[in-house]
């Protein structure tokens, strides 16, 4: 394990360089470059806001702004975007780099680290764009902004845990990639992003809370919409779930890393 970390440390320049390269190539061939990173999720928010704001407006007590619903939507959507994007990248990280893995000897875990780096760059841009939109709507949720650090950390642990495990399994059984696209659609609607948890009948709420992403999204909404510090207790479940998955992913990786190149 120590050797593994050391070899990754030796590849830090490569990892940082790859993240930079990926960012750089966005500008080379498209005029708007990085703007597309934020335009896509913002467009989604706009659509939901246009379609659902009349229905949802009444359900957001305690927020003064007349734009309460778009603000709510955006807060949930940034987390979801990070989760879905990183999960998608990790799912195919070994398959897409099959050529490199087959021809060059380097620490394989450098590849998922590049994915994490790139997703974090995109997430940061989206977060900045979100604050810009908030400012435009007259909403300035800076008071509990530091809470975002632990919230993002938990999101990363959870996403990387699930993504690494599925990414390894996907090398062997490619159907996993196909199944995940469907699962993600359900997952999105099983997370209180577009709606609030109050509109779900009491007896089904536990279902939403089985979803480890729900508490995280609610945490983001506390900080960004309601300007409250998030409840700590509900965070334990996604944190522990994430750590467990991360452990499982690493265990699987250590056992499977030799077979990965055999099969690719």
């Amino acid at each position: 394990m120590k050797r593994l970390l050391l070899s990754l440390w030796n590849y830090r320049h490569f990892i940082v360089g790859s993240v930079k390269n990926e960012f750089r190539t966005r500008f080379i061939r498209s005029r708007l470059g990085a703007a597309w990173i934020v335009l896509h999720p913002l467009a989604q928010v706009l659509i939901y806001a246009l379609v659902l704001s009349q229905v949802m407006q009444a359900k957001l007590p305690g927020v003064d702004s007349q734009y309460a619903y778009p603000i709510y939507l955006l807060s949930g959507m940034v987390v979801w975007n990070l989760f879905a994007e990183l999960l998608g990248r990790l799912l195919t990280v070994f398959i897409e780099n099959a050529n490199l893995l087959k021809k060059l000897a380097f620490p394989k875990l450098a590849l998922p680290l590049v994915s994490i780096g790139s997703s974090m760059v995109n997430f940061t841009l989206l977060l900045l764009a979100m604050y810009l939109v908030f400012a435009f709507l007259g909403h300035f949720p800076f008071r509990y902004i530091l809470w975002l650090v632990p919230l993002i950390s938990i999101t990363l642990v959870l996403t990387v845990g699930i993504g690494l495990t599925l990414g390894i399994l996907n090398v062997f059984v490619r159907d996993i990639g196909q199944v995940l696209t469907i699962v993600l659609q359900f997952w999105f609607w099983l997370t209180p992003i577009v709606y609030t948890i109050d509109i779900v009948p009491q007896k089904y709420r536990f279902l939403l809370h089985l979803n480890p992403l729900s508490s995280i999204v609610e945490g983001f909404q506390s900080v960004l919409v309601y300007e409250r510090s998030p409840d700590i207790l509900p965070m334990l479940y996604p944190a522990l779930f994430g750590l467990f998955m991360l452990g499982a992913g690493m265990w699987l990786f250590l056992r499977a890393k030799e077979e990965i190149t055999d099969v690719l």
Partner: peptide, 8 residues
């Protein structure tokens, strides 16, 4: 730079 980085 990228390839040589990959070589370590």
């Amino acid at each position: 730079y990228h390839s040589a980085g990959l070589m370590g």
